[in-house]
C-alpha cells in the first residue's frame, strides 16, 4: 500500500550488498507490487542463492508466493496449492529485458487482469512509459521488474516498476546537474527534462515527458504515486474527491506530496503507481488536460529564462 510506503522504505536495511533477507513481520507486510518488484530487483542483483524469505507472514506470505517472489529466492515456498493460470486479479513479478518483452508483457496484461477493454488504454499507457524509461535510461543489465495488482473492491489498479541501474541522479547528471537525489527526483517529474538532452524538446528519441504524464494520471484519478531513487523518495498524496479536477502543476513540489531524504541509498529507481479505474473512463479528457498544462509549463519555463530589460 503506497500510503504506508514511507514506513516500508524507512525500515529497509540495504547495508549488505551481498545478500537479501526478506523479513516479514507477523501477519502484516507491504505487498504493494512496488514492494515486490523492489525485492525481486534486489534479489536478482545479489543472486538467488543469497536470498532468503522468512516464513512468518501468514496469508500475506501466500500472496507473495503467488506474486512469484519465491522464484527469486533460495527459500522454498511453504505453500502448497495447485497453481492455476495467472488469471484474475494480479500479474506476478516479471523481468523485462527488451522492448519486445515489453510489448508482449503489455499485450498480455489486460487479459490477465480480466479488465474490460475500455480500461486498457490507461494501463497500456502507464506500463509502456514506465518500462520504456527503464530500458532506455537505467543502464541496468537486469532490465525492468514489473508487477500489477487489481483490487476490485476499490477498483484500483496498482503497478510497480523497478530497476537496479544508475538511478535518477546519475541519469540526469550529464545535462541537468542535480545537486542531490531530491533535486533529481524533482527534475525527473518536470515536463521537458530528459537525461539525453538539455533542450526542452529533448532529442528525436526522448522528450522527458513520461514520468510527468504518469504522475499526473495518478493525480487526476486522486491516487498515490511514489518514486524512490538514491536516498530520496517523493510521494504524491491523494487529492480530495471534492476537488472536481485537480490542477496540474509543472513543479511536483507544488502538488500535495511528501518528500523524504536520507533513506537507505538505493542504486536504481523504483516507481509505484495507483490508478482508480472509475476515474479513467474518459482517459482522453485526462490527456487533454495534460496537453494544455504541458505546453503552458514549457512556455513558463522558457519565459523564466528570458533576460529582463532594465528600465531606469
Amino acid at each position: 500500500m503506497l500510503v504506508t510506503f514511507d514506513y516500508f522504505l524507512k525500515n529497509l536495511d540495504l547495508s549488505n550488498k551481498n545478500c537479501l533477507d526478506v523479513i516479514t513481520q507477523g501477519q502484516w507486510l507491504n505487498v504493494h507490487p512496488a514492494a515486490l518488484v523492489f525485492a525481486a530487483a534486489l534479489a536478482q542483483k545479489v543472486g538467488k542463492e543469497n536470498v532468503i524469505i522468512d516464513n512468518t507472514a501468514g496469508k500475506s506470505g501466500l500472496y507473495i508466493d503467488r506474486m512469484g517472489l519465491y522464484d527469486w529466492s533460495k527459500t522454498e515456498s511453504p505453500y502448497h496449492y495447485s497453481r492455476h493460470e495467472e488469471a484474475g486479479r494480479f500479474v506476478p513479478v516479471k523481468q523485462i529485458l527488451t522492448s519486445n518483452d515489453q510489448s508482449k508483457f503489455i499485450t498480455d496484461l489486460i487479459p490477465l487482469l480480466h479488465l474490460p477493454p475500455e480500461k486498457s488504454q490507461v494501463i497500456y499507457y502507464i506500463m509502456g512509459e514506465l518500462i520504456r524509461n527503464v530500458l532506455e535510461h537505467s543502464m541496468s543489465k537486469d532490465g525492468a521488474f514489473v508487477a500489477a495488482q487489481y483490487r476490485p473492491k476499490s477498483n484500483v489498479l496498482s503497478f510497480g516498476v523497478c530497476d537496479t541501474g544508475v538511478g535518477l541522479k546519475k541519469s540526469l547528471s550529464y545535462y541537468h546537474f542535480p545537486k542531490d537525489d531530491v533535486e533529481a527526483l524533482k527534475l525527473a517529474l518536470m515536463p521537458g527534462i530528459s537525461g539525453t538532452s538539455m533542450s526542452q524538446s529533448g532529442t528525436g528519441d526522448n522528450a522527458g515527458a513520461g514520468l510527468y504524464i504518469v504522475k499526473n494520471l495518478s493525480k487526476m484519478t486522486r491516487n498515490y504515486f511514489v518514486i524512490y531513487s538514491g536516498t530520496a523518495m517523493y510521494k504524491l498524496l491523494k487529492y480530495d474527491k471534492r476537488i472536481e479536477r485537480p490542477k496540474i502543476h509543472s513543479d511536483p513540489l507544488d502538488d500535495r506530496h511528501s518528500l523524504v531524504d536520507k533513506l537507505p541509498d538505493f542504486h536504481g529507481t523504483l516507481v509505484g503507481v495507483d490508478i482508480a479505474l472509475d476515474d479513467t473512463s474518459d482517459f482522453n479528457a485526462l490527456m487533454e488536460d495534460i496537453k494544455v498544462s504541458y505546453s503552458k509549463a514549457l512556455r513558463e519555463r522558457k519565459e523564466r529564462r528570458y533576460k529582463k530589460v532594465k528600465f531606469i
Binding site: Y124, R132, G204, N206, A207, G210
Partner: peptide, 14 residues
C-alpha cells in the same frame, strides 16, 4: 486504440 507520448515523440519530433 492508443499510443504513448514516447511513441509519437519518436515518430514525429525529429
Amino acid at each position: 486504440s492508443g499510443v504513448t507520448q514516447s511513441f509519437v515523440h519518436a515518430l514525429i519530433s525529429d
